[in-house]
Amino acid sequence: MKSHEKRLALPRTWAVARKSGTFIVRPNPGGHPRAYSLSIATFLREYAHLASTLKEARQLLNAGKVSVSGRVRKDYQYPVGLFDVVSIGETHLRLVLDVHGRLITVTADHPERTIMRVTAKSMVEDKVQLNCAGGRNLLIAKDNASVAKNYKVGDALLVTLPSQDVIDHFPFEKGVVVFLTGGSHPGQVGTVEQIKGRNVVFKLPSGEIFATMRRFAIPVGKTEPAITVTAKKN
């Protein structure tokens, strides 16, 4: 697979300059959708602004100064996706969406935590396996089957990084706080008012009520987001 791609052909979700050059580093395939994933080299150059060239970005990575979600990464094509935390020294940045559906960074108030949405559930030998967004998996022992029974597809888990120990569980139900990734209100936070099959009705903090597809809504908290998912207003 090619290690680069043309800037003009990038997904619209990438908030990078299209005409500042011809090529940009292509991320390796990973657990995140193509539109919501970019290479760590691109993150360092275009988002964190800690490197002006690919050579400088690779020097930072090879020195072991960059970690993604708690693990040091040295592959400059390593994919960084939605809700991932990139740490460089004492700087911790989380990748989220703005109100235009573009990937942006916010300061991670809890860099040791992230939220994972459950996308599938199955049995592996005597354990329950939860497949989550971002390519993450959780194996729950048979002894905790009663706990795993409460985890359903569409729910979200607040976990520690990088160990993935479950801290809290956010069921997809009425009253839960959700972060929107698509539709007409991407990058916004709302409260679920009603669930209608594949659609969900939610209320924004402004009091406005809208409907969107259920797959666009990720539970992020019970009364407020458990992690920072939106940029703070000045």
Rank of each mutant, 00 (worst) to 15 (best):
G187P: 04
T212A: 11
E90L: 10
A148V: 04
L103A: 05
A51Q: 06
A48L: 12
A57I: 06
T91M: 06
P186L: 03
L82M: 14
R117H: 10
S184M: 03
P79K: 12
F202D: 04
H4Q: 14
P162D: 05
V192P: 02
I115G: 01
T105V: 10
V166G: 05
L130P: 04
S39Y: 04
L8Q: 14
R94F: 06
S39G: 12
I88G: 07
P27W: 06
A148M: 09
A48C: 06
F179I: 03
Y151M: 11
N234E: 15
S163E: 15
H92M: 01
N199F: 09
M1D: 12
P225L: 00
T228E: 05
Y78H: 14
R26S: 01
T53S: 15
F210Q: 14
I24E: 10
G182N: 03
A108L: 07
V96P: 02
P11W: 13
V147G: 02
K149V: 05
A156N: 12
E208L: 08
K65L: 15
Q77R: 15
T212I: 10
M1T: 00
M123I: 03
I104Y: 04
L138K: 02
V25D: 11
P79S: 04
Y36G: 05
A120D: 10
R26C: 05
V72Y: 07
P205G: 06
P27K: 00
H4S: 14
R136M: 12
A51R: 03
G187S: 12
D155H: 15
A141S: 11
L50T: 08
F83T: 09
K121P: 03
N150D: 08
Y151N: 01
S39F: 11
K174C: 13
I24R: 05
A41H: 04
K74S: 09
P33Q: 14
L8V: 12
N199T: 11
L95W: 04
T42S: 12
G197Q: 08
P186C: 08
G154R: 07
L61T: 03
V159R: 09
K74F: 01
R18F: 00
S37E: 08
S52G: 15
I195K: 02
R198K: 15
D165G: 11
A141W: 09
V166E: 04
V176N: 09
S20Q: 09
V68C: 13
L158P: 09
A231P: 14
A231H: 13
A108S: 14
A145M: 06
S87T: 15
R73T: 14
F43R: 06
D143E: 08
R7E: 07
P79A: 04
K233R: 12
